[in-house]
Design a binder for these strands. Structure first.
Lengths: 231, 231
DNA sequence: CCCGTTGATGATGGATACAGTATACCGCGA
DNA sequence: TCGCGGTATACTGTATCCATCATCAACGGG
């Protein structure tokens, strides 16, 4: 079950993947979760070829559940499956990133406002604490990322928009993997402002702060992407 | 290859499905398209159980491509797959519909404005003609529906927002199948207004007309749904 | 008479095996 | 030497088969 990257052929497939097999009912579910995580955290880099037998072997499962997982991830735009040619991790252009952020802004602003509008005073306090905590960068970058991710997931949960929340998280997954490069200078200040707005339960202010934060993040990423392309 | 509904067991599975096999490269692709169409057009009603062997047999394929298709449709929220229990066509509550429409309004308004902003004068004229044509109800309800659907798909294509467009079409698929019941009284007027706005190339006006149109459609559907629930 | 248990049945999830297609490599000819 | 064609290979797509789990009904006990 535990996996091992061994047969590097030419692609940089040094990935070591493993399934936890804790909660999921089916292997396909476990594979999907693991692959999604691997892509989000950059273990599977954009453009990388995903050979079915290879990945399946590394995960200790057959090709069937792996294919199911790939189909799902394709609808989530994390991989691209082509005819009889195979699957690859999707690559994003600057335009793609801009479009994704446009959608994120539209939905996340709504959800943030709804959430802050709905939550009780105690919940607001708890979430504000979580916001400041996720700004503390005493932990590793990837850990901090997961922290922030679950923080937003928690907040948006209170917006009572399950479908919108799901789309938001998918959109985040699509761009998050590119954020390994970006600098996170103003993240602290933004998150603290957001925590204040949440604690004070001011929906429109929270949404505004969030939008500004997302815009900064977007501009960083796009700049990084375009710089990388010019090289 | 041609299918035939025969073995009704208890569920109202009178469906007759068939694959065209024209363009698609893989059987899974054909199955996905056909199932999506069947769900959108109401051949597969919400809540209906989708037994793998049955559907696969009716489509003349094995269970494998069918399962792949189901996985995709699950991410699109058209079917719900549960553990070891099977797949069903998803049902929508009034809240779900409201949420979906909220997202549609946000995205479609943007796309309509972008599209009208981008298109040339000739394209505007062509699209306006298509808009009025799709309002002419000399053809069957389902035909009119597909006409409108492809009309919007065409327009949004000019918005240069491929991801947003894809999400929009998925959201439409999720609610369209409930529109068989709804009355389409004001559709004519709205579409004519929209055609004018497009022909005049006024983005904000086109978006406003569209939003109003979508809102009317939403209210019709929600009212219908709640009436159905109270019965 | 009711309820919990247990066995049978059917469907789903997964593995193995096979067919078809795209790609790469190699040889041939200009 | 370069371009082209053919074959060989490797991977994908699909079908068939097996294991596992859920559902339901019958049976026995309280």
């Amino acid at each position: 079950m535990v996996a091992l990257g061994a047969k590097n052929k030419g692609e940089p497939s040094d990935l070591n993947l493993s399934l936890d097999m804790a909660s999921p009912v089916t292997a396909e579910e476990a594979v999907t979760t693991e692959l999604r995580r691997a892509i989000r955290e950059g273990l599977l880099v954009p453009g990388q070829r995903l050979t079915q037998s290879e990945i399946a072997g590394q995960l200790g499962v057959s090709r069937i559940p792996l294919r199911d997982a790939l189909r799902r991830l394709e609808v989530e735009s994390l991989v691209k499956i082509e005819g009889h040619k195979g699957a690859r991790v999707t690559e994003l252009t600057a335009d793609d990133v801009a479009e994704i952020y446009e959608m994120r802004i539209a939905f996340e602003a709504k959800c943030m406002a709804y959430a802050v509008d709905n939550i009780s005073k105690e919940t607001a306090r708890i979430l504000a604490v979580a916001a400041t905590a996720s700004a503390d960068n005493t932990l590793s970058p990837s850990e901090a990322f997961n922290q922030r991710r679950s923080f937003y997931s928690d907040i948006y949960h209170h917006a009572n928009r399950p479908r919108m929340r799901r789309i938001i998280m998918q959109l985040r997954d699509n761009v998050d993997r590119y954020h390994l490069l970006s600098n996170r200078a103003h993240a602290h200040r933004s998150h603290n402002e957001l925590a204040d707005a949440i604690a004070d339960r001011k929906p429109s202010r929270a949404a505004a702060v969030l939008v500004e934060h997302i815009c900064e993040s977007r501009d960083d990423l796009i700049e990084e992407l375009e710089r990388g392309q010019h090289v």
